[in-house]
């Protein structure tokens, strides 16, 4: 089956700094793909180039067979996006934000149902800024689902949440996965990645240093736990530097 998201030789740099270098990604329908890496490793830049909110220097991107910049109007009828930063108007209420979001699409889902599905029915009249961290994140997933998308992009979905709230969010995502939604997410939490992702890519200084399943990542490292394996992949250079400074 053809890829839902296909990225080939993606490069992006800001002035002198290389943010993304020769990244290839291919995500099949129904797959949950995790983009990992330290802060500044190029996760957000990669995601933004894929979405077309940033223009890549070279390389090609297609989502559902469309170019995200040229086919923006048509493509984003079928794609839900949740950015890392909370981007909503000051003083806006939950219901208003949902209604507004729904009005942007030709055939949106019923947001009242989505809110109840995410346990937010009693918060409809509340201001978004008054919700707790977990409630906000659940609201943002619900918003990303309003277009009834085939693909969703979730950037650092659970950063800043407590353990309980994170589990709730995972549960929501697992349900979506079962329904066959294709998901591209970025995360800093390895337990989350292990629980949700079919495939991962680890980025370091804009380059892919690993791409495959979580099991493959563990197998390729000298460790048994994924978090150790991840750190082993990302820390290599620092370890070398440390041993050099120890020696001197």
């Amino acid at each position: 089956m053809e890829s839902v998201i296909r990225v080939e030789k993606l490069c992006k740099s800001y002035e002198q700094i290389t943010a993304v270098k020769n990244v290839d990604i291919s995500i099949r329908p129904g797959e949950v793909f995790g983009l990992l890496g330290a802060n500044g490793a190029g996760k957000s830049s990669t995601m933004e180039c894929i979405l077309g909110t940033k223009k890549q220097d070279s390389g090609t991107v297609s989502i559902l067979g469309m170019n995200p910049q040229k086919g923006r109007k048509k493509l984003f009828e079928q794609v839900g996006v949740q950015f890392q930063e909370a981007n909503y108007q000051d003083k806006i209420r939950v219901e208003e934000l949902c209604e507004l979001t729904a009005s942007l699409y030709k055939s949106p889902l019923d947001y009242v149902k989505l809110l109840s599905q995410f346990g937010l029915s009693d918060k409809r009249k509340s201001q978004v800024s008054e919700l707790s961290g977990g409630q906000k994140q659940r609201l943002f997933i619900a918003l990303a689902l309003i277009p009834n998308p085939k693909v969703v992009f979730l950037d650092e979905l659970t950063t800043g949440l407590d353990a309980r709230a994170r589990r709730d969010v995972w549960k929501s995502l697992s349900d979506l996965k079962e329904k066959g939604l294709t998901i591209l997410l970025t995360s800093h939490f390895m337990d989350e990645v292990e629980a949700l992702c079919d495939k991962i890519m680890i980025l370091k200084k804009g380059e892919s240093i690993f791409c495959g399943t979580v099991q493959e990542a563990i197998a390729a490292s000298p460790y048994e736990k994924f978090e150790d394996a991840y750190l082993w992949f990302t820390d290599e250079e620092e370890r070398e530097n440390e041993s050099i400074s120890d020696a001197s």
Binding site: L51, K73, F76, V81, Y88, Q89, D90, L104
Partner: peptide, 17 residues
């Protein structure tokens, strides 16, 4: 500038509108 700062304009870039 507030809507740009809050990335509301950016959010609209990833919608059909």
């Amino acid at each position: 500038s507030d809507y740009r700062n809050r990335k509301i304009l950016k959010r609209f870039q990833v919608t059909p509108i």
